[in-house]
Structure formats: structure tokens, C-alpha cells
């Protein structure tokens, strides 16, 4: 099973003005047939927490990939203890390198690992872990804050084991996982309803079919322009999406294609999908407007409408020299 991971972390406005580095860190890995991703938010006042966050995300992804089969079959309390002991070991080594106290490396930790149709989720502290099932965005693990907004549990907290959440299960209809820090929470988690924004389904679906470089760049820009403007805190996200098949978008059902392109799921729309499929085939490499028009034998107005819809669906790249290309991962029919 093929999973794609897209991630981004941007420095918050508060940290930018105080000269504090971005303390949110993300990491992902595919190893031993296991896909794992992690996100950690370094504690505000811990001076080296960005190093701690970086170290634990990398270490835990490797640990999960190497030990997935053992962990999935082990008893929950023992898994929690072994994960915390592993993190403590990694941070202890880093303490010696940085000549600091372990609390200087404190961070939250959220991760997901998948292998052979099964998944493991773990969460310490605030931030949210969500998943997408049959097109719906659901919460797997809510933020763990204390009573007050500026309190939470960290990897180094003595009570970490008590509040740590560990979930395992079969993937079945799950098509994506989302990890986010508390800064990102402001934009995507409704605190009154304790629900995640449906817009995350669109992001995970895009991540599943788009060229990863394009998707990373666009996600980063969206976070810089919109998400980080809603808070003074750092903002980060990891999207782990199940690829629909080896041909990406072309493996979508007609219904899914309609939804993806913002078309009503009607017979007429389904008929129009053929024009979009042809256009996306022609747009697998950069081409001028004229060359695309010629290749597709289309009138200008019709091509304009197609390009506009692809742009609105965020799957069209445009270059300053007037060339166009699909932002989807390459597929060859």
C-alpha cells in the first residue's frame, strides 16, 4: 500500500519578532515497508526545545519503522513505557551533546505509523491527530491541555505516561492521517465543537495525487499567507495520505473525480470528465497555451474553462513564460 507524506512547519509571528527559532518540527520516513510520520512542538520557554523536537520526531519514526511488528502485538501499557524510555534515552544523549538539562529539550509528540493494513497512533501533549474515513475528517486524539491555555504535557513531563494516548487498528476505509500543532489547531480545530475542519479532507486528497514538491511548496505558502496569520505561535502539519493507486488521480472513481474538480456528480459532469482527463494527459509536461489547444483540438473558450477549473482545483502549475503543466504526479495510461 502506498502512502504519501507532505509536511510543513512555519515560524510563528511571535517567534519571528522575538528571534526565537521555529520550535515545531516534523519528520517522515518509509522503511521496512512501514510509513511513519511525526510532529513535535518544542516547549515555549525551553531554550533548546527545537533540538529536542527535531531529535524525537526523527528517532520515533525510525523506532516505529524498525519495531512496528513487535509493538502492534504488545500490551498497551508496556508499549507506552518502552516508547517513553526510548525517547528519554534519545534526549539524554542529546543533553550530553548540548550540555543542557533534559527539560531544555521538552516538546509535545504526535505520530502515526502504518504497515500492512494496520496503524499505530500516539499523542503526548497538545495539538490534534485526525484521520479521513470515507471522505469525512474525524478526530483520533484531542489536544491535552491543562486548565489554562499555556499549559500542556511534554515528552519530559513526569506525568507523560498518564496522559499519553496510544491507539491501534486496521486501516480499512481510512485514506489519510493529519498531525497538527496547537498553532495550526487555531485554524483547523473548532474548539467549541471539538471537531476538525472538513477542508482537511481536500488537503489530504490533494496530497495523495499531487507532485510532492508542488504540494509542499503550496502548503507552505498557504501556511505563511493564511494559517500563521491566525495566531502568534509556530504552525505545523503533517498530511499522510493513501495514494489512490499507481496512476494517482486517474485511479479515482468518476464520483471522486467530480468532487475533486468541483463538479456536481451528474451524468453530464461525468461526461465532461473525459475532456479533463485528456487535458491532464496533455499537461503531463510543460506546454504553451497554443500547443495544448492544438493537441486537444479545442476552441479557446473551452480550453480556458478547463484550465480555470484545474487551477481552482489546485492542480495546475503556471510559469511566467505562459506555459502550463498539471500539478498531479506523473501517470502514464
Amino acid at each position: 500500500m502506498n502512502w504519501v507524506t507532505i509536511q510543513c512547519a512555519v515560524q510563528g509571528r511571535g517567534h519571528l519578532s522575538s528571534g526565537t527559532p521555529c520550535q515545531d518540527k516534523t519528520f517522515s520516513i518509509v522503511k521496512e515497508a512501514c510509513s511513519a510520520c511525526a510532529l513535535a512542538d518544542g516547549a515555549g520557554s525551553a531554550s533548546l526545545s527545537h533540538y529536542g523536537a527535531e531529535a524525537v520526531t526523527q528517532a520515533i519514526c525510525n523506532y516505529m519503522a524498525e519495531n512496528f511488528d513487535l509493538i502492534i502485538n504488545e500490551e498497551g501499557a508496556a508499549v507506552k513505557r518502552s516508547i517513553l524510555a526510548f525517547i528519554a534515552d534519545r534526549l539524554e544523549t542529546l543533553c550530553n551533546e548540548k550540555e543542557c538539562a533534559i527539560k531544555d529539550l521538552a516538546s509535545t509528540l504526535l505520530f502515526v505509523a502504518e504497515k500492512g493494513g494496520k496503524f499505530i497512533i500516539c499523542h503526548i501533549g497538545d495539538g490534534v491527530i485526525g484521520y479521513v474515513k470515507e471522505g469525512k475528517v474525524l478526530v483520533a486524539s484531542h489536544p491535552e491541555n491543562g486548565e489554562f491555555a499555556n499549559t500542556t504535557v511534554f515528552t519530559t513531563s513526569s506525568n507523560a505516561i498518564a496522559s499519553m494516548r496510544l491507539i491501534k487498528g486496521n486501516l480499512n476505509q481510512i485514506s489519510g492521517f493529519i498531525l497538527m500543532s496547537d498553532g495550526t489547531e487555531t485554524s483547523f480545530y473548532n474548539k467549541r465543537n471539538k471537531a476538525l475542519s472538513p477542508s482537511l479532507a481536500h488537503l489530504t486528497r490533494l496530497a495523495s495525487v499531487c507532485n510532492p514538491d508542488y504540494m509542499s511548496q503550496k502548503l507552505n505558502r498557504t501556511f505563511e499567507d493564511l494559517v500563521k496569520q491566525q495566531t502568534s505561535d509556530d504552525c505545523s502539519i503533517v498530511l499522510m495520505s493513501r495514494s489512490p493507486g499507481s496512476r494517482g488521480y486517474m485511479d479515482f472513481s468518476e464520483k471522486d473525480k467530480c468532487e475533486f474538480l468541483g463538479l456536481a456528480n451528474t451524468r453530464a459532469s461525468r461526461k465532461r470528465l473525459r475532456s479533463f482527463d485528456s487535458a491532464l494527459m496533455a499537461l503531463q509536461s510543460w506546454g504553451t497555451y497554443r500547443a495544448i489547444k492544438h493537441r486537444l483540438h479545442l476552441r479557446g473558450k473551452k480550453l480556458d474553462r478547463i484550465l480555470k477549473r484545474l487551477d481552482n482545483a489546485n492542480i495546475l502549475e503556471t510559469r511566467e513564460d505562459g506555459r502550463y503543466k498539471s500539478a498531479l504526479r506523473a501517470f502514464f495510461v
Partner: peptide, 18 residues
């Protein structure tokens, strides 16, 4: 060209912490 993957209306409007 569509600059961002989402627009501001797609985001939640949570009240600021007090």
C-alpha cells in the same frame, strides 16, 4: 493563478484565548 490551497473561509474562526 490560485496562490493558496485554501481560502480564509475554509479555516475555523476560534475566539482568542482570554
Amino acid at each position: 493563478m490560485n496562490r493558496n490551497l485554501l481560502c480564509i473561509e475554509d479555516l475555523e474562526n476560534n475566539p482568542s484565548s482570554r
